[in-house]
Nucleic acid binder design. Structure first.
Length: 321
RNA sequence: GGGGAGAUACCAAAGUGGCCAACUGGGGCAGACUGUAAAUCUGCUGUCGCACGACUUCGGAGGUUCGAAUCCUUCUCUCCCCA
């Protein structure tokens, strides 16, 4: 656990002079962020902004593992079940919504807590995300069917023509990236790359980042346990109820797509549940990778709430108040 | 008791004399990622050095061969069918 110490020492030596601080609590799914976050919020007497791209949807609760009603009563949460699955929510909208809310919250608190595992959403708030023209679903579906008919090659060739900068930068094997760049370039007549500033946004508040992790084996155990609990709590019924939304973005999530497959008769139930377990493990690994590459995170184990509180107090200079 | 099929790396599964350290899929590990981000994409995955290379693998033990996961003998185990 030396890495934690190195990281803590380096950051806690820094002195933060700014009055307002956004404390970010990140980490893989099922590591215990909700519990930890609530404990922190109580201790620091503040509110929680959820940074979870799935818990934000109104219609879902079991599969997205939203905090329980009791937990939500204990500490005020924002962005939990606030938008509909039918809406086209994304990181950019989240950035704007959070910044607007923060203005208000910082009027009341010196310190606000953001808790969640959606790396891109957190990044959008902390570093900004460049403005793009409004998404054009018609163009997207046109490009998508072209991708299916003509293959990726045809799209990348066009991207090289329209936006060589992006073509040189983007992962050309990833059709999502190619599609996006092409879509924007076609829609605006300007290369996608010109919309990207490449510089992090300045924020009128300070940011403190901490992340939770635990031994891999234990994390996997907790994931399995959680999946079993979700099934007992009625995940299958929730998924049945959400079948009309099966084709929306959010319903491609772990826990839903596997059960849609079961409901459509593609796999037996036990197999579907097993896939949920495996896909959740993969998801957790990806989250860890994402947060690990950002060396501003100070890592804690989920039982180090006291240590985290102390670290936050020291780092945010609250003690001087 | 008789007849048949099979045992391959963590799992599943190809290979049926040299092109095999062994296809492929899963799993695992690592990574990329500025609008689907719980998405999408990439690399590695016998051991040791981790580049070249060296060493040990395809149920066990023998054998044939210049050479075997692949052929022969035998042993062990599994599955199926008939009794």
């Amino acid at each position: 656990m030396t890495w934690i110490w190195i990281c803590r020492t380096r950051i806690s030596l820094r002195t933060f002079r700014m009055a307002k601080t956004l404390v970010v609590l990140a980490g893989p799914t099922a590591v215990g962020k909700t519990r930890f976050g609530i404990a922190l919020a109580k201790e620091l007497q503040t509110e929680i902004i959820s940074a979870d791209s799935r818990q934000i949807y109104k219609e879902a609760s079991i599969g997205t593992a939203v905090p329980s009603p009791e937990e939500l009563r204990t500490v005020r949460h924002h962005f939990i079940q606030t938008v509909s699955l039918e809406e086209n929510y994304n990181a950019s909208r989240y950035e704007q919504d959070v910044l607007r809310l923060l203005e208000e919250l910082f009027g009341r608190y010196d310190l606000v807590l953001m808790v969640g595992g959606s790396g891109l959403y957190i990044k959008a708030v902390c570093e900004g995300i460049d403005d793009l023209p409004p998404h054009d679903p018609a163009l997207r579906s046109k490009l998508l069917s072209r991708y299916e008919k003509e293959g990726l090659q045809s799209l990348t060739e066009e991207l090289w023509r329209l936006d060589p900068v992006s073509a040189g930068r983007i992962d050309l094997k990833n059709h999502m990236r190619v599609l996006k760049a092409l879509e924007v370039s076609l829609q605006t007549g300007k290369p996608y790359s010109e919309f990207l500033s490449g510089t992090p946004a300045r924020r009128p508040f300070n940011i403190l980042r901490l992340a939770l992790d635990m031994e891999r084996q234990e994390l996997y155990r907790r994931i399995n346990e959680r999946v079993d609990r979700m099934m007992k709590d009625g995940l299958l019924e929730e998924v049945k109820r959400l079948q009309p939304y099966a084709r929306t973005n959010a319903m491609k999530s772990v826990g839903y797509r596997e059960l849609f497959d079961y409901l459509e008769g593609k796999v037996p139930l036990e197999e579907a549940v097993d896939r949920i377990r495996r896909n959740t493990r993969k998801f957790a690994r990806k989250q860890i990778t994402w947060f690990r590459k950002n060396d501003q995170y100070c890592w804690f184990s989920p039982d180090e709430i006291r240590e985290a509180v102390q670290w936050i107090r020291e780092s945010s200079d609250l003690q001087d108040r």
